[in-house]
Design a protein around this nucleic acid. Structure first.
Lengths: 223, 223
DNA sequence: CCGTAAATGTCGTCG
DNA sequence: CGACGACGTTTACGG
């Protein structure tokens, strides 16, 4: 990883064109080949960047030092350097990697194992049930043999209700499945999503991730 | 802006929980208060971060140096530091700011000027036709005097079809306009969006940005 | 490699 | 402050 603090101006020509006038910025060059140009704000997002795979060529033009970064799509990042104030390289070694907990995939997995928390006596038909417009998170059968489509979200927003609505529309055309009703399951459901769901006849269920995880815990299973 | 290269381990507790075992990484502390932890890959995205507004407290715990970053939502980023390999601060001064030249606004403008590329003999009623739920990109009249609502996107995704569907629902309630049909125009239309559009009776048109621009080009207008 | 959905999305703008 | 849409979205995952 190379860290450069430099007075520079930048032009990006690619999916859009963008320009940065001369100023002092951080140029971050990573081992994966990516280049990003940071100001002292905007959280972690750079002003400009080039994602890997790409190539950085340090050249000298009429106006002085010019770095040219290109990728295979022909996008270009041109960095004209006026003055370098700092330049250091560092070997970071191997990154062991990030472990995450609490994402939608886990929630879906836990609910698949414990569909009874959504409805008494329900059984799982399958996870990621395929349709023409994408997979339904969970497809279940209730005690009366009726089909239930379940959309799982970490945070239940209006988009999720729309998504489930589309699935229901399609599934209800399948004579073998119809009538199919919908359940919107999330750790938190926004009021607007709840309203829309009610309007569409979709049931909302707030799920307790910690409780599901607790029940799923191997320790607990012993009892 | 402060740049620290350090052997560290990190825990994030917030919208999810995440953990990074001990390794060497870049800690980037910006003047806006943000903290981000970068490995030597993943383009510009950090492994972990805290967006401003937040507060960084450098403390010493039982296990050595511990940096605690918190925000107002109670999210926490805990950075345990084993060894600092580099630590430098830099005054970047004022950032003049980025200027962008967008594509999708121009696409709409070009199509407004050249609605005939969407349908033979069509005429523009108006751009940004207002409705209760937002403006329709383009409203046109075809050769038979029927109304056409057009949604313009750079990339045609399923969301755009949903958006147009909502407009059509509203516009068709207006007796003076109804019946209104829909056209989904984009440089690229995703298969899923295409399927949904077909299902909704919405026509898809792939537009050639370069060709439109070429036709619009002042040089070309001379002839 | 393409297509799709998730994301600690982030970042504007507009009520 | 919250919603709504755009983003050079990026990123991970599955066929």
């Amino acid at each position: 990883m190379r860290l450069v603090i430099a007075r520079c101006r930048v032009d990006y020509v690619g999916r859009l064109t963008a320009h940065l006038p001369m100023a002092t910025r951080l140029l971050l060059i990573k081992a994966d080949g990516s280049v990003s140009i940071h100001a002292d704000d905007r959280a972690y997002k750079p002003l400009n960047w080039m994602s890997p795979p790409c190539e950085l060529v340090e050249g000298t033009g009429a106006d002085g030092v010019l770095w040219t970064v290109t990728n295979r799509s022909g996008e270009r990042l041109l960095i004209g350097i006026d003055e370098i104030l700092h330049d250091s390289s560092h070997d970071l070694g191997v990154e062991p990697g990030l472990s995450k907990d609490g994402v939608e995939a886990q929630l879906q997995s836990l609910l698949a194992e414990q569909v009874h928390t959504l409805g008494e006596g329900w059984s799982l038909i399958r996870r990621e049930y395929p349709t023409a417009i994408g997979p339904v998170d969970l497809l279940c059968r209730d005690t009366e043999g009726l089909t239930v489509a379940i959309e799982v979200k970490r945070r239940g927003d209006i988009d999720g209700v729309e998504q489930l609505t589309r699935y229901l529309e399609l599934l209800n055309r399948d004579e073998l499945l119809a009538p199919v009703r919908g359940v919107f399951a999330a750790q938190e459901i926004r009021p607007q999503a709840r309203t829309l769901a009610a309007d569409r006849g979709i049931e909302c269920v707030v799920v307790d991730y910690e409780a599901l995880k607790g029940t799923d815990d191997p320790e607990s299973r012993l009892f």
